[in-house]
């Protein structure tokens, strides 16, 4: 049943698959992000309470969702790497982690920039901002752990264990932070109660969320190819491919 999946665990095949998929992901991502952003910035209506500042939502929400989506993808990869001992999965974790850091940074900064006009301060120890911040530190921990090892094979395995440990902890962290927050915080945050969103705001948001998803997929493919090449630099297939690529280019 799983036979058709097996070839993709080989470096060369995985590399080719990424190469074949990435242009499509890139095009779809660009189309969605441009349409969604133009729609969101120019055509979507302002919020009746928050005015034009609501236009931050079109990047804040997609970045926050996909910063967690990236971690979910890494968790699945870590599980596969540990259970079936598939090297490609380990590479995928490391390929995706920097993208996750990027998305988390975006989510944090846009959250702060949205909080300033709405709550009056750049930073509120709001449950979501806090757990996003901790997510950032876990991403950084993953990269630091990977870079600390000389032997990248060991590094990949260590990172997949830590990613899995983190994935068990992240929901716990999230819920404890929510609970801690409701305990400490007054009504400052909850006054941003959400009236059900208008359709004209919903569509550009949805497009940007899916667009960020495809961006994750595109960058994931490109960076995955990089990781494969770095690891397999001295293999004949890489040399052959690079030479052939030169011939095509000439």
């Amino acid at each position: 049943m799983w036979k058709w999946l097996h070839p993709w665990a080989k470096a060369e095949k995985a590399y080719q698959l990424c190469g074949r998929l990435s242009p499509w992901f890139g095009i779809i991502c660009l189309g969605l992000l441009v349409t969604g952003s133009v729609w969101g910035l120019l055509f979507a209506p302002p919020d009746y309470q928050q005015g034009e500042s609501v236009r931050i939502i079109y990047i804040h929400v997609p970045a926050s969702i996909l910063s967690m989506g990236a971690y979910a993808a890494m968790t699945i990869a870590a599980f596969i790497a540990l259970v079936w001992q598939i090297k490609m999965s380990e590479l995928y974790i490391i390929a995706v982690a920097p993208i996750g850091i990027g998305f988390t940074l975006i989510a944090l900064l846009t959250g702060a920039a949205w909080g300033k006009p709405m709550w009056g301060t750049w930073w509120v120890w709001d449950a979501r901002l806090t757990s996003e911040l901790i997510l950032l530190f876990i991403y950084i921990g993953i990269l630091a752990l990977y870079n600390a090892f000389e032997d990248k094979n060991t590094a990949g395995k260590a990172v997949s264990i830590f990613t899995l440990v983190g994935s068990i902890n992240l929901p716990i962290i999230h819920y404890s932070v929510v609970w801690w927050n409701t305990l400490h915080q007054g009504a400052t945050v909850s006054k941003m109660g959400k009236p059900s969103m208008e359709m004209s705001m919903y569509w550009p948001l949805l497009m940007n969320i899916i667009g960020f998803g495809f961006l994750l997929a595109y960058l994931g493919c490109v960076r995955m190819q990089n990781q494969i090449l770095l690891r397999e630099k001295h293999r004949p297939w890489v040399k052959k491919m690079v030479m052939e690529g030169d011939n095509h280019a000439v």
């Binding site: 005015g51 500042s53 236009r55 931050i56 990047i59 920039a113 300033k116």
Partner: peptide
């Protein structure tokens, strides 16, 4: 609408 700093900073 007066939120230029925040919106353009984010984007």
């Amino acid at each position: 609408g007066g939120y230029a700093t925040y919106v353009w900073l984010s984007w």
